[in-house]
């Protein structure tokens, strides 16, 4: 895959940052406006997928390698679980309780509000963005010769 024509490449180069930035915005505003971790993560993944479609494998590999995205994917999932376990290890707090709300309530309709929900949204955003990109890459670049020999 060497990529598409020059027009597509140029436009993709221009708008990739905007798409990524919009995805991050949706993730960070998840507790205030419609959207959140999943929707924002899909938009983040779309910016990487667009680079892969426009430029081909080598360039996309430079932006975010497959191994790197796999590690980030796992990191996001572990982060969600650890945020859930945070409350579990404190006395008088159940599993997946909103611990941060007790210490740092913030004020409603501001970025710092709703306790640990923005953190969970961020972790979900990382997980979904890199996970979707990993799915796309592994489906697009599957090589049949890796397959085991038929018996």
């Amino acid at each position: 895959m060497s990529g598409m024509t020059g027009i597509v490449k140029t436009v993709a180069e221009w708008i990739k940052g905007f798409i990524l930035f919009y995805g991050v915005y949706i993730v960070l505003q998840g507790h205030l406006t419609p959207g959140g971790g999943f929707a924002g993560g899909v938009i983040i993944a779309c910016s990487f997928i667009m680079m892969e479609l426009a430029f081909g494998k080598q360039r996309a590999e430079k932006e975010l390698s497959e191994h790197g995205s796999h590690l980030l994917d796992e990191f996001g999932a572990i982060a969600i679980l650890l945020l859930g376990l945070w409350g579990y290890f404190l006395p008088q707090m159940p599993f997946f309780s909103n611990v941060l709300l007790e210490y740092w309530p913030g004020s409603p309709f501001h970025i710092i509000s709703a306790g640990s929900i923005p953190l969970i949204n961020l972790a979900i955003g990382i997980k979904v963005g890199t996970g979707l990109y990993t799915i796309f890459v592994s489906l697009a670049e599957y090589k049949p010769e890796l397959q085991e020999k038929e018996e």
Binding site: S138, L139, Y142, P144, Q147, E150
Partner: peptide, 9 residues
């Protein structure tokens, strides 16, 4: 993913 594998098999 399974469909791709099945197609190759």
């Amino acid at each position: 993913a399974l469909a791709i594998r099945l197609y190759h098999a």
